[in-house]
């Protein structure tokens, strides 16, 4: 059992959620509430990672953030670290790969709020920020929760993008799913089996937790 790999996986999942949720809530709400030019393009761009093979996504990320690219050099100059083959790079890649899993449920969550509820909140004297915090966010909460769970679960299972961008550095970019592949290549079926079972248990527990939480949230409408 590769505990370091498990820890990398869990940190990556948590980090992805921490980065993506605030952004996803902002963008998801924007897409749900506002009509603006270029909305279709934004929605398509958000969804692209869903249909693109992970290797293609990884390839473009490498090209964009590679040591020879302007973006990669700029990042290196600021952070003092290059993105490819580092945990930070993995986090950036994971955030982009998970965009659709986060934005879409949140968007649906905000879309499900009837417009007269929004209007009523304004007519109760709530400022736009109070409306968001006290009415909209609590009502969109099931969508936000779903987004977090999906992103976490998807990050644990991500393989292609991680392999392309992060490689297989122990303690840095070797996630559990990479470690399983690594062990299988080395004919270490036992370790691979233990780690696969661990991922399975985490997945099942996560899903059970989701169900419980969303039931407790219990904002069944009407």
């Amino acid at each position: 059992m590769d505990w370091t790999a498990l820890s990398v996986s869990l940190w990556l999942g948590a980090g992805t959620i921490a980065i993506l949720l605030p952004f996803g809530i902002w963008l998801g709400r924007l897409l749900a509430v506002r009509q603006f030019r270029g909305k279709l393009v934004v929605e398509a761009l958000v969804t692209v990672p869903l249909v693109l093979p992970p290797t293609v996504l990884g390839f473009y990320l490498l090209v964009t953030f590679g040591a020879r690219s302007p973006l990669g050099q700029a990042f290196h100059a600021i952070v003092g670290q290059s993105l490819p083959f580092s945990f930070t790079g993995l986090l950036v890649a994971s955030a982009i790969a998970n965009l659709p899993f986060v934005v879409q449920p949140i968007q649906r969550g905000f879309e499900a709020i009837p417009s007269d509820i929004r209007d009523a909140a304004a007519c109760c004297g709530l400022s736009p920020w109070q409306r968001f915090a006290r009415i909209e966010l609590p009502l969109a909460w099931p969508g936000v929760l779903t987004a977090a769970i999906l992103a976490f679960a998807h990050t644990l299972g991500e393989f292609g993008v991680v392999l392309m961008v992060g490689g297989n550095l122990p303690g840095e970019t070797r996630t559990l799913s990479i470690a399983i592949y690594d062990r299988m290549q080395a004919f270490d079926d036992r370790s691979a089996g233990v780690m696969a079972a661990t991922l399975l248990v985490i997945a099942v527990v996560t899903l059970m937790l989701t169900t419980t939480l969303s039931r407790r949230a219990g904002f069944a409408r009407g």
Partner: peptide, 20 residues
């Protein structure tokens, strides 16, 4: 003046109560 700055009470058709 935006709605939240108008001293207006509104009873909406389907009431629009906050379900939570």
């Amino acid at each position: 003046a935006p709605p939240h700055q108008r001293a207006v009470g509104v009873v909406f058709q389907e009431y629009a109560l906050f379900p939570h």
